[in-house]
Simulated assay, not measured.
Amino acid sequence: MEASIAGPDASSAPDASGAFSALAGALHAELQRHCYRMMGGLQDAEDCVQETLLRGWREFAGLRDGSAGRSWLYSIATRVCLDALRTRRRRQALFGPSLDEAEPGSEPWVEPWPGGVPPSGPERDRDIRLAFVSLLHGLSPRARAVLLLHDGVGMTAAEAASALGLSVAAARSALQRARTALPPQDAVAADAPAVEAYVEAWNAGDVDALIGLLHRDIVLTMPPWHRTFTGREAVARFMTSVWPRYDGFRAVAVIANGQPAAAVYASRGTGFHLPHSLHVLAGRGEIAEIVLYAPPLGASLFAAFGLPPTA
């Protein structure tokens, strides 16, 4: 447990302190992923987790059923996220979007998540793919919350309603709307040979080889910017126009949202290759989709992925 969790009465309740520390430690990583699904951003998710642990520590003495600790802490986390989203909407209404937020009315976008979910344990079947999380952010916050508590945490509609202060009818309605709005996901993560070839093309500075890896109907998006390139020819024109601006590239394979991705470093006459962009890849055999987090957003993600500042 982090030091910031400790409450003013920790010394008077050592057993409760130890029990809460164990609960918080066991759930910290999955709460981060839950808050990420709710918020769509790495720092926002971590801020919500910290607030969740503070609230949880203050309220832990009132938890009567120790076996319900997991769902109880998830309920707090979800309410914290909803509060944060309401605050964000009020701020946007007053001041407009900040530079790191999408413009009102634009398509939802989310930051990539470093890594994936554990292959075993309570999270093993939970979806964290980028396309799924992006679709979640097309839902209302309430519908998103009910869906994640019901389908992800395993709460009944009645339990989710109680956790969020809703009527059971409202929770069921939100759940139905969420399921109707989420179409089946058919995106296939890029396979290992395609990712290896993609990384090698960047490292070799071979734009023709890179273009040769792309599916004819490839879609390249660059969140949060309003730029989408559809089809190999359009992507090729974009890549060949950008490529000469740099002296060279270095790329490494990483995992984002449980999917293969490439972190690309670029050099511009300095002799150093600095963080440039993060590319989340999909497609079997050929690359059929690239979600490219471009500068300055792409570079800011490298530390979150544990990548070195130069390559």
Rank of each mutant, 00 (worst) to 15 (best):
A3R: 08
G7I: 14
S12P: 00
A19I: 03
L23H: 09
A24M: 05
A24S: 14
L27F: 04
L31A: 04
R37E: 11
R37L: 11
L42P: 03
L42H: 12
V49E: 02
L53A: 09
G66E: 14
S67P: 05
R70Y: 09
I76G: 06
T78N: 12
D83R: 15
R86M: 14
R88K: 12
R89W: 11
R89K: 15
R89A: 15
R90Q: 15
R91W: 05
L99T: 11
E107Q: 12
V110W: 01
P112K: 03
P118W: 03
P119G: 03
S120K: 11
P122Q: 05
L130E: 11
S140A: 11
P141V: 02
R142L: 13
R142G: 00
L149V: 10
V153E: 10
A163M: 01
G165I: 03
A169F: 06
A171E: 12
A178E: 07
A181R: 12
A181L: 08
V188E: 09
A194W: 11
A194S: 14
E196I: 00
A197C: 02
A201I: 00
W202G: 01
I211A: 01
L220K: 06
P223W: 02
T230M: 09
V235A: 10
R237Y: 11
F238A: 01
Y246P: 00
V252M: 05
I255W: 07
P260H: 07
A261K: 02
S267W: 00
G269Q: 05
H273K: 07
H273Q: 08
P275A: 05
H276E: 00
H276K: 03
A282T: 15
E289N: 13
I290Y: 05
P295C: 12
F302W: 05
A303E: 15
L307G: 05
P308E: 12
T310N: 07
A311S: 07
